[in-house]
Amino acid sequence: MIERHLLKLRARSQVSAEEENAIRETIAEIRSYPADQTVIRAGERLHSSMLLLDGLMCRYKDLSEGQRQITELHVAGDFADLHSFTLKRLDHNVMTLTPCQIGIVPHINLQRITEQFPHLTRLYWFTTNMDAAIHREWEVSLGRRTAASRIAALFCELRVRLGVVGMTDGDSYQLRLTQTDLAECVGLTSIHVNRTLKELRERSLVEFRSGRVRILDWEGLTEVAEFDPAYLYLDPIPL
């Protein structure tokens, strides 16, 4: 149930059996949500955080005239809003992009973790810092990268993040997003994404078809993306 979450944590620091048990006990219930459902609205008072067990979610903001910017994608094993533990109200919405299984973690339970498990608390602090690192990388993409480079960077990031939680199959992974979802991640239009995917395919770098990403040339793709996985902090950290 929380195996992917444990894989994500253990890639960075040891998690003891006692800590693992404490994590399991923080989950008050598990809920299933359909795709495309907003599960947290900006501004609402929150009393729990959401641990994504299976599926894809995103943080997003809406502008007028239906313009939407997705600011981060969440894969299985991520807390979608661990930061709501300290913020209590979010400045963005959170939605499901595919059907999702979500563990509901009451803030009172997280408080108990902070009081009884200092190492685990530091590890969770690390994960919110990593979310901030991902935001910085997306900021660079949106501000400076070309369309091809933005999409390449996103596919590289997801390959690494999904790899950590055991959800890649060699150079390929499932990504049940539409071109519109992708466009909302990279600040382009669906038409522009379509044309750019064609370009990446014709350059034999990556294919995205029927909800699956197939990387044809990892080195070439990382070059186009200027992708350096350092921002994903993949090595164990002394916490």
Partner: peptide
């Protein structure tokens, strides 16, 4: 376009096309 988009009518589709072209 392998997926298509759900849009209210042809005029909305034209607007999406114009937005897409401007982006390209």
């Amino acid at each position: 376009d392998p997926e298509g988009q759900d849009l209210s009518d042809l005029s909305a589709a034209r607007s999406a096309a114009i937005d897409g072209v401007r982006s390209l």
